[in-house]
Design a protein around this nucleic acid. Sequence first.
DNA 1: CATGAATGAGCCTTCATTCAT
DNA 2: AATGAATGAAGGCTCATTCAT
Lengths: 214, 214, 214, 214
Amino acid sequence: MNTHSFLVLFGRDRRHKINKKEKNNKYHLILKAAVKVFARQGFYQSTVAQIAREAGVADGTIYLYFKNKDDILVHFFSYRTKQVFERFRAEVNKSDNSLDKLRNLIRRHLTEFQRDRDMAVVYQVETHQNSRLAEDQIREMSQMYQDLVSEIVETGQQEGRIRKDLYVGLVKRFILGAVDEVINTWLHSDKNYDLVSMADPLVDLFVRGIGTSD
Amino acid sequence: MNTHSFLVLFGRDRRHKINKKEKNNKYHLILKAAVKVFARQGFYQSTVAQIAREAGVADGTIYLYFKNKDDILVHFFSYRTKQVFERFRAEVNKSDNSLDKLRNLIRRHLTEFQRDRDMAVVYQVETHQNSRLAEDQIREMSQMYQDLVSEIVETGQQEGRIRKDLYVGLVKRFILGAVDEVINTWLHSDKNYDLVSMADPLVDLFVRGIGTSD
Amino acid sequence: MNTHSFLVLFGRDRRHKINKKEKNNKYHLILKAAVKVFARQGFYQSTVAQIAREAGVADGTIYLYFKNKDDILVHFFSYRTKQVFERFRAEVNKSDNSLDKLRNLIRRHLTEFQRDRDMAVVYQVETHQNSRLAEDQIREMSQMYQDLVSEIVETGQQEGRIRKDLYVGLVKRFILGAVDEVINTWLHSDKNYDLVSMADPLVDLFVRGIGTSD
Amino acid sequence: MNTHSFLVLFGRDRRHKINKKEKNNKYHLILKAAVKVFARQGFYQSTVAQIAREAGVADGTIYLYFKNKDDILVHFFSYRTKQVFERFRAEVNKSDNSLDKLRNLIRRHLTEFQRDRDMAVVYQVETHQNSRLAEDQIREMSQMYQDLVSEIVETGQQEGRIRKDLYVGLVKRFILGAVDEVINTWLHSDKNYDLVSMADPLVDLFVRGIGTSD
DNA sequence: CATGAATGAGCCTTCATTCAT
DNA sequence: AATGAATGAAGGCTCATTCAT
């Protein structure tokens, strides 16, 4: 007996809630199917019919949950990706040490993107597009990430673990860019290596650079 | 015997020369127009008619120089972008010192992408797509870039300027990723700052990292 | 034996009455809502969902009272409009004098159409359509109207008040057409004048024409 | 050898003109086909595919000549119907006598609408619609017609042939309405009688009315 | 070589209708 | 009886590509 049947048997009066959940389920069902299709073929190469087929619903059903095709992408960013980025913050907060914060962030980043490859692909593509359909959502997430790095750098500088002569704006791009590229390479590879194992070497590069100390 | 066969028999040489030149001109004309349109609207959002209008030719003319719409993008990568990447090599060769090589590479990279913004946009988008129309070309260029970094790292290690305990494969992504992100941010900004000025601080980060030495 | 059969056996009368009344209520509710929506947007531009919303019922409920969308229009004509046209007859019967009959008819016509603007619009549109969904109903009403005019003319001819050298078939169209156009103009105006006030001048035109007597 | 090949052989220098005409022809071809389909099924029941088939062109070709489906109707009114209404004016100008002017107008009206039945149907439907796609064009034509009637009435009043105690605004609707209804009835009949033969009896009704003189 | 009118496959979206609840 | 989520057929429109001139 699983959680669901438990609710059915003992939680009858929660009927409305269950319905709510089922409705929610279809929303998520379509969203997940859409991201899968987008990941495989790209947004513009994907058809609503393909998404519907992937989700196992009729074409028209899509429009009960999303305004139009574009809207699916917007929802993906404002729901799924935002969710992931909020986990990043939680991870950073787990430690007080700046370098641990950084390591936690990178590890989590790679972990989440490895776990949900479809999300990773769509995220990569869309954030590098010029005319971004989910412009606002992307900007918001980017800001969230940069704030985390800012916080890490500031903490590190106070601790004396991070250099004080840094242009923080550049550090943000430096870190995000490197992580993105590691993910991007993984996505275009055969993916038969562990993405998360890149975290520690990467952090090492961030902190110590490639140069010798002298 | 019609007009055409007359020219074929008696006007061959002259005709061929003129055609060659015109063809070349129009080929580049269309290519440039296409990249401009792609940069503005994305590949799939751009229409052949728009490219033709931008180039000042008829729609049908496009098909005298390119097999189809996809082919334009392939040509862009195999012609224009390859050209740029070859300049990177030349730049790296200008110095014997590994860190100078690196600095030269990054500077040239930023210089070229700042100079031709349309190319930059199309390059960014296309290299992050999953289903890459110009798969082969992109792979080739990526390889070219990575070879440069490999060479720099090896040189540096021999010189004692670059750490020996590095996973070179990761260093490549580390560097390319950071540069890409700096460019990407610039492309999505108001572009009223000098991209090339990011080169030296970036190289400094690559070499020394963000950590304090102790 | 279930709840339903219990009611069938012991509660027949009461149940039927209630149902009949509720059904009737909802039937009229939907019909009125439909006409309102049709008047605003035209039949084909109106959706069943809009009608349902306007009536405050669920989409599916419509189909408990009407076979399909077309059927609503048919019912409108066979119920509402027919009702109106029957009042015309009553009005004509109120007088024995042919010209009074005519005046009463025109007045009533304008009065009813001014009172129920939605009906007026739908009637106007539908009677001028080529492929009439409510073909039979419209034909029947048209016949009803023409019979009234026939009767008026015949009475008038016997009284010596109406010319005997008339092609009665044409007179019918002459009168109905003029009234229709007066209504049509009113419907497309700002409607801030009294439609009924047109009755007497109109009857005057019907009777005396625009020419001088000599 | 047919007409076409004759032109090809001997009429070469008219090449451009022929093209121009053919182009024009396709515009008219589609317009005519569209009106035919609209007349048969109504605007909203007609599909672009049907129009294309009727015109013998591809669906997409429609959009080379018209912005969208609505635009076809607008063009119909601003081109074809306007043309007809301008002939009305010419006809009215043919005589100086007010009653002859009126007779000429009515005759021409019935003649043109009998000649082009498709136009007649579309005109009837569209002018009685509430939400008129060709609102402006219809208003303009209506005005044109009313101006003609105004002119006729004024002339007649000066001549002493038309009563001076008339509300001219009503006379316009009185006349147009009756004519419209005569046409409307004809359109919904088997059309095996001559519409134009209604002109004289109708004018007689307009001028003398149905009443006896005393 | 160059043109651009014509094509028609394909896609997004709407909406009348059904049916499980 | 009533609901409204789900369906899927159908239609307007776009646009890459062709080909007669």
